[in-house]
Amino acid sequence: MSGYYSQIIIITGINILLAMGLNLITGYTGQLSLGHATFMGIGAYTSSLLTKAGLPFYISLLAGVLIASLFGLAIGMPTLRLRGDYLAIATLGFGEIVRTFLNNLSITGGPNGIRAIPLKTDLTTVIILTAVCFYLLYRLQSSRLGKVMRAIGQDEIASEATGVNSSYYKIMAFVIGAGLAGMAGGLYAHYFRYINPANFTFNKSIEILCMVVLGGLGNPFGPVVGGVIISILPEALRNISPVVSQYRMVLYGVILIVMMIIRPQGILGGNGLFINANRKGNFKIFRSVKGAVKNADS
């Protein structure tokens, strides 16, 4: 397979890993996290530093996963008391704090980042890891545990009344999601061989959110669909015109707004967490047109 296509597949796999983790956090337990790229960055930096120190790739990849999970735990625990929009801002703030440190610490190379990371990520590794993670997460999401997480997202008070320790499961979602992002980060670093703080910014977090929203929040297959679309889209656009890829972020903004207004459950249809039960039609215009037709009939 040519290098170009294998690169696209590798990027897609990494993006799917990222989106799967965020889907568990946001789509299931209903916690909007705006710092998902940060966990990716932590995994990327940890594993790169360890490989460069001479550790075998898989060991450092695992370490990246664990350290990212640990950060997931650290951010998940104190911010649990926060609901909805406050949590979103706190995760965003956490991302900015970590970025400031990455930019200033000498061990992370400051704004220059880390160079000459050994090339360890290949197509097979990415495909196998993504498939295995997807399978495990799919099992988890369709099990009782997945239903518990979904229930927490729908109604935390009712969940607690049925005996669910919601904090425990919300943190669990954060830890698993962060770990997956850490793995994605490790794979990313050992493929592109160069990382710096600018790879893991708020914009990357938004890109991940876009994948999940597009595919369908709370749908186990959503991240795959969203991940594929968002990974291939810039390439497809680049083939049309080299300038268009500049419009990527603009497009993400439009996607988020339009999806929320027209189809908040995403392409595949999610778990209803983000849809209001009272809304009949999707678009006000359509609704009033329908109304007009009905009135004309009677």
């Binding site: 983000f274 849809i275 809304r279």
Partner: peptide, 18 residues
Amino acid sequence: ESPRLTLLISAIGMSIFL
């Protein structure tokens, strides 16, 4: 009439867009 998170995601989209 939508859940607050839906509105928030739309707001984030608007910010990124502008």
